[in-house]
Structures are given as C-alpha cells and as structure tokens.
Design a protein around this nucleic acid. Sequence first.
RNA 1: CUUCGUGGUGCUAU
Length: 367
Amino acid sequence: TFVANNLLSAYVRCKRLQDARRVFDGLVKKDVVSWNVMIGGYAQQNHASDVMELFHKMCRDNVEADAITYFSVLKACVSPTALKWGEEVHARIRHAGIESDVRVGTALLKMYATCGSIKQARQAFDKLTNRDVFSWNVMIGAYVKTGSMDDARLVFDRMGKRDVISWTVMIGGYAESGLGEKAYELFPEMKREGLRPDAATFMSILNACASVGALEWVKAVHGHSLEVGLESDMRVSNALIHTYAKCGSLGDARLVFDNMGQRDVVSWTGMIGGLAHHGYGHEALEAFRNMIGEGVKPDEKSFVAVLAACSHAGLLDDGRQLFLSMTQDYGMKPDVFVCNCMVDMLGRAGYLEEAMQFISDMPVKAD
RNA sequence: CUUCGUGGUGCUAU
C-alpha cells in the first residue's frame, strides 16, 4: 500500500487525476492515506463534487477519516450552495471527536466564512478554546470579507499577539472598504509594535493609497519598501506601477517599470492600463506589442487592458486584429470581460449592428 | 507513505 500510495501521489502531483483515479480504483487495500491523496488531489483542482463523492464512499467503506481528510473536504465547500455539505462534514467532525483540534476548528471557521455564513463562522470561533494566531486571523478575514470592518476591528483589538498577517488583513480590509485613511494609519502602528511589513503588507497599503488617490502616500510607502529591502520584489513593483498610475503619476510608474530587472505580464498590464487611463491609447498598444516582443505571453487580463485602450482611443481595426490574434494565435476563449470590451469598442465607434452580431455570436452569456 | 488550518499585485463596464 505504501508503494501504491507513492504512485498515487506522483500522479496527483503531476495533476493527472484520471490516471490517479484508475490506480486508486484498482487498489485492493486502501488505507486512510490512499483516500487522503485522492481526495486531496480533487480538492486542489477544485473538483468539489468528486471530493464529496469520494468522501461519502470512504464513509460507506468504514474507513475512518482523519484531520487531513477533513482539511481537503472542507476546502471543497466554497459556496453558499456547498453550505449543506459543510454542515454535514461538521457533524462528522463532531462525531469523530476532533472538533476541538485547533487546526480543524479553524478550517471549519474558514469554511463557514467562505460559504457566506458569518454567524456560523463566529460560532466556530467562539467554540475554540485553544485559539492560535491562525484562528484569530481567519476570524478577522471572515469579517473583512463581509465588509464588517467594525467587527473585524473588535476581534483585532482583542487579539493578544498579532502578527504581520493580522495587520495586513486589517489594512487590506480597510482599503477594500474605501477606508484608506484608516488603513494608512495602521501602517506606522504596526511598525511601532516591532513588526516588519512584508510584500503583502505593501500591496495592501498601496491598495489603500490607490483608493484615496494620494500620490504623497505612495511615495512614502515606496520609500519604506526600499528601506526594508523590497526594491527588487516584482510583486511590490507591480503594485507600485499600478498605484502610481492610478494616483496620476505615470512618470513614477514608468520609472519603477524601467528599473525592474524582470517584468512579468502583470508589470506590463499595469503599465498598459496606466497608459490607457491617461489617454495614451497608441502607447498602450505599443507597450502590448513590446511585451510580446520581449517574449512575455499575454493573458486574458492583458488583452482586456489593451482592448479597452483601443476602445477609448478609437483604434477599431487594431482592436479587431487583437481579438483575432487572441483566439487564433493564443487559442484563448474570450471571457465575459473581453466580450464587454469588444461590444463597447464597436458601440463607441458606431458599429451597432456589428456589436449586436457580436453579442449573439458570443460564446459567453451576456448580462 | 498523504498536497495537513490564515493575508497580498495587473484588465472592462466605472
């Protein structure tokens, strides 16, 4: 069984779930690890119904699930419709007597939050007697997700030892709720507690700057990022490009962009979006072509950015060509955002019939 | 022998 489990996990690691399943179904002796590997594979690929199907089969075979099984199964409950599954799994966890395990309890709390049941999430939190920093952070994040920043703050203030993630979640929550000032206030407080902001913290605080449009804040935050040695962190640089452009300084965005040693599709898309936002449609299109010239592969989001640029600049023919290139050269299926851009572009240019035709040919449902 | 519980960056309509 050890050998078979290793084979299984090799397939799963290569994301060859159908092969893994064939091996799994052929096993005469399955232990809990075999089940965990298979269920974990489905969970990772977000095949929720396969996870549940296998989990139920496991229960029918009288194999006792352990904490690892439950982590995977709970991970599959990710929507309000999956709440029923989650509750059923919760009942089994209670029955197995591992509800008080802090990791299991935190996973339950997270599951309820993800399924949109903040009340049950809070109940799970209150039931935990041995909370650790993860549990607190997940509870804060649950409130942040519902936009209840006051509740998030109450939990945050009650917390004993807060870590970088606690602060980052709060900062990101305030930024997302449009409370940029509150987010920005937390930044120095965090440092006063002796915590060092990491890349995620910077991305959250930059979000706050972008929502307020405060260029001076961006410059200050940029300076701090250099102080803590994040000057060559691509994620922070990408966020800086976007935020500088949003706050009106295309020049600073360009400066960050030009000084990067490596640029990925996010860096380029940030720059393209910034150029387009400032009315430089031709330059945005040129940047898109330069990106391809440098061997960076465009994705759906970069196509949306450049198509929007074409739309606003009235570059109808270029836009149509890009659309063809996207489907033919890159084999991408136009998503709802791409289709919106195309319809917007055609409509703006006065080609209403072609726009209507495009809508009826769309592979995605119109809204 | 198992992938075992938290946070973060780009696009459209806006």
